[in-house]
Amino acid sequence: MPGIDECLLEAMRLPGARGASLVDWTSGLALGTVGESPGGDHETTAAEAAELARLAAEHGAFAAADDPGGERPPVEDLIVSNRDSYHLLRFVDTSFDSSVFLHLWLARAEGNLALARIRLGEMAERLVLG
């Protein structure tokens, strides 16, 4: 049964993983971080990723059609790619009120985006369900 740190360390075992964190998107707080972060500052990265996650979560255009405006996160994940890396943000669904996501930073050359997306989804589930 993983805690936050175990979950992040597991994410770091994915091929090409550079850094991982668990972030609250309402406040922009990093609840846990491992590895590197772009710019070398996990707190700034968390605040910026939180802003992006909030926009995605709050705009109806991105919500699933069968659950518009439910209590669950309306978006599963966000993928941002640039020339040298991928950012994968996975929303975590909890039974209590929260607004958190897992953020995985992958090197583009070694990373496997499809695999990482599936694994990160499983990790998000195991994190809260045990």
Binding site: P2, G3, F96, V128
Partner: peptide, 21 residues
């Protein structure tokens, strides 16, 4: 609570950190 299997460590840590901050 953890030993009784009522919560996963991840859920407890997540909720507790939220409440703490």
């Amino acid at each position: 609570l953890l030993d009784g299997g009522h919560l996963s460590p991840g859920a407890l840590q997540l909720c507790h950190l939220g409440a703490l901050y």
